[in-house]
Nucleic acid binder design. Sequence first.
DNA 1: CATGGGATTGACT
DNA 2: GTCAATCCCATGC
Length: 194
Amino acid sequence: MKHSFYDRPVVEVARDLVGCVLSCGDCAGVIVETEAYHYSEPASHAFVGVTPRTRTLFGRPGLAYVYRSYGIHACFNAVCEPEGVGAAVLVRALQPICGLAEMRARRGVEDVRGLCSGPGKLTQALGIELGHNGLDLVRPGPIQIDERPAAWRAVSLLTDTRIGITKAAELPWRFCAQGSRFLSRPVSRRSVAA
DNA sequence: CATGGGATTGACT
DNA sequence: GTCAATCCCATGC
């Protein structure tokens, strides 16, 4: 994906990333669920400004922001908007397409639907770790995001409220591929076409 | 320097 | 449905 793809409003990028392919090494999956985070709202890590933790979030669009969640899991984001803004898209779920055996080995799970159906699960399945924080997704490297395969070009999206947050919980900044069986959680009845 | 709280998951009732 | 695991780091004294 090009630099300019990420240098746009984060909600637009979150929507457009659904259907794209996230790969790390020999493993890959179609992104079926994303969430947008922006410095202006308190659910975003960038809300507190530039700190050692959030430095990457304020970097160039197209950087990977990887952070540790609950002391246990790694979560993967793509930095968006112009450098210095502080915004990113959290990738929450994938439909696995390549490297299934490696994913199963890393996850210790057989069911395909259990491999990448959550932000902590997909990083474990793909081997994404904290050391990948700050990697440039736009340049050649272990982690890539590629445009939608033909079958996903016209994917229908649903928008919903974000999961697992207590602040700014009302914003409809979660985006899901309609009908996907690989989501981290089903969409709520309140979800609407995006 | 001490404290508290997660953008989660999996095991258990 | 409930709950513990586990650790980084932002905050406040």
